[in-house]
Nucleic acid binder design. Structure first.
Length: 263
DNA sequence: ATGGTCGATCGTCGA
């Protein structure tokens, strides 16, 4: 089973890129973020024509997450517990193919260290911690993927000297991300590509649209696939489709993917 | 130099 996550930065503006990527890389399950439209505007039929079942959590203009699956989709959850007043479309979870649980999540960017949006980001990580702790007790094959908006280590940043305690790398954000690993979730990319054994600059998933960042490979690794122990046991390969960041009208993120050996 | 470049939507916010 191939599972991929992609911050698409508007599913309507990116439908051509998305369809090309689906045809060329053939993921079984896709976790999308920043679809940027309400559910009625989501190009459901075009994706169904490509062989996918679709589950969407939409919002006007901002955020929006979705799950595409070649297999059945059941038990859909569209709100991250822990804050009933949070109406932003940043979380969707479902069971695909009858027994594999997946979630597509879009962690708040955080605007700037110390702002109200930054505090919302840190609270979001606490909610993820509490929810994943509960999910992990079920001992399922679980994949929680998405745009975490955190570069977990300096090896995930093109120039760490430019990123000291800044947004995306601050100690509090990294602690939030690390707390999920401490629950027992495993970073699929780092499980197969340890930071001291690889060219870390090939693993970036996001490049700013500005200043020619992609041409200079000024990137960060902020999109992640986290696996439960039961999923990690099945992990066989993983990678980043960075070629799709270089196409015409690209998203500013590249897809990240992994394959699991399913019985 | 507090900029730059996108997308949604149509002046301005969010990233």
């Amino acid at each position: 089973m191939k599972i991929a996550s992609w911050n698409i930065n508007s599913v309507r503006a990116r439908l051509e890129n998305l369809a090309t990527w689906l045809r060329e890389t053939e993921p079984d399950v896709v976790l999308l973020q920043e679809t940027k439209c309400i559910e009625d505007q989501f190009p459901r039929e075009a994706l169904e024509d490509l062989g996918y079942t679709v589950a969407v959590k939409g919002q006007k203009s901002y955020n929006g997450v979705a799950i595409l699956s070649k297999f059945s989709i059941e038990d859909v959850v569209t709100h991250l517990p822990g804050d009933l007043e949070d109406l932003e479309a940043r979380y969707i979870e479902a069971v695909v193919g009858g027994k594999t649980r997946v979630a597509s999540l879009y962690v708040p960017n955080g605007q700037d260290v110390g702002t109200e949006k930054y505090l919302y980001k840190l609270r979001f990580f606490k909610r993820l911690y509490d929810h994943f702790q509960r999910l992990l007790s079920h001992r399922e094959t679980l994949i929680v993927g998405g745009d975490y908006n955190v570069a977990p280590a300096d090896s995930d940043v093109y120039d760490p000297s430019l990123f000291q305690s800044r947004l995306l790398v601050s100690p509090e954000e990294r602690a939030g991300f690390r707390s999920l690993l401490n629950l027992g979730l495993v970073d699929a990319i780092r499980a197969l590509y340890p930071e001291h054994n690889v060219d870390n600059s090939t693993l970036y998933t996001w490049w700013d649209y500005r200043q020619g960042s992609f041409a200079k490979n000024n990137g960060l690794r902020i999109d992640h696939l986290l696996l439960s122990p039961e999923a990690t046991d099945k992990l066989s390969s993983a990678g980043v489709d960075r070629v799709f960041r270089g196409q015409l009208k690209p998203s500013d993120h590249a897809p990240v993917w992994c394959t699991l050996n399913m019985p």
